[in-house]
């Protein structure tokens, strides 16, 4: 059974149909990417999974349970965590408080401590800055914090929304390394990216979203060699 299973999902904003019946699956432990141009509906899909946006039709199943249109806070409790686009760090909270906010749903204090140690091991930079206000971090550090905050609640599934957005190329490489490390820790990841090249390098399987429909889906390897994908998303002509 796949961990995440989406069937014929339809989302509409007023008269505009943002998702026109999308089906997608993510297997447990996988790193799957969803690529597409700006406005293709990528963020809408993630927001619908986490209940921020409501679906008109279709179902979302997580670990076999139908979670379509649940409240956000209930979905988080099931083990899905979204790392939102633009990082959305709580700017006036310290790094550590941001991490505590990420672990909000955990009741066991020891577990929180253990997770805190885990993310500090993973991101030593954050450990150095634990008392600093989130808003004062650099863009790359903020993205690390967003990733770290995302795994503080022990989610099974991590939804990453454009983690490379607005970052310098060197930092982007770093962030993708972290994403792979997090995946190796056993977290299933659905990665939404405009940077298709990078995304298809780290992911095992990919979906290409075009104006609300899935245009292609295949193993990353195959997608990278697909001429149409190459032309439209990888910036390779000829």
């Amino acid at each position: 059974m796949p961990l995440l299973e989406i069937e014929k999902l339809v989302v509409q904003y007023g008269a505009i149909r943002a998702l026109k019946g999308i089906s997608l699956t993510v297997e447990k432990g996988a790193l799957v990417t969803l690529i597409g141009a700006n406005g293709a509906g990528k963020s809408t899909l993630l927001n619908t999974i986490t209940g921020v946006v409501k679906a008109m039709d279709g179902t979302i199943r997580f670990d076999g349970i139908d979670i379509t249109n649940w409240d956000s806070h209930e979905i988080v409790r099931c083990g899905i965590c979204q790392v939102p686009e633009g990082r959305k760090i709580f700017s006036e909270l310290s790094v550590e408080e941001n991490l505590y906010a990420g672990a909000y749903i955990l009741k066991d204090k020891n577990e929180v401590k253990k997770n805190l140690q885990m993310v500090y091991d993973l991101f030593p930079r954050l450990a150095e800055r634990r008392k600093q206000e989130g808003g004062t971090l650099s863009g790359g550090e903020q993205q690390m914090l967003a990733l770290a905050r995302g795994i503080m609640s022990n989610p099974q599934l991590l939804l990453l929304d454009e983690p490379s957005l607005g970052l310098a190329p060197l930092i982007v490489d770093k962030i993708f390394e972290f994403i792979q490390q997090i995946n190796q820790l056993g977290k299933t990841i659905l990665l939404v990216e405009q940077n298709a090249n990078m995304a298809l390098q780290v992911a095992s399987y990919g979906y290409v979203l075009e104006t609300g429909i899935i245009r292609f889906q295949d193993a990353s390897e195959n997608l990278r060699n697909n001429d149409l994908v190459k032309k439209a998303y990888l910036g390779i002509t000829g």
Binding site: V52, S72, V76, R77, L93, A101
Partner: peptide, 13 residues
Amino acid sequence: LDFKTAGLMGINV
């Protein structure tokens, strides 16, 4: 600070 993101942390807004 940001109620949307707070909701994504599982906080009951």
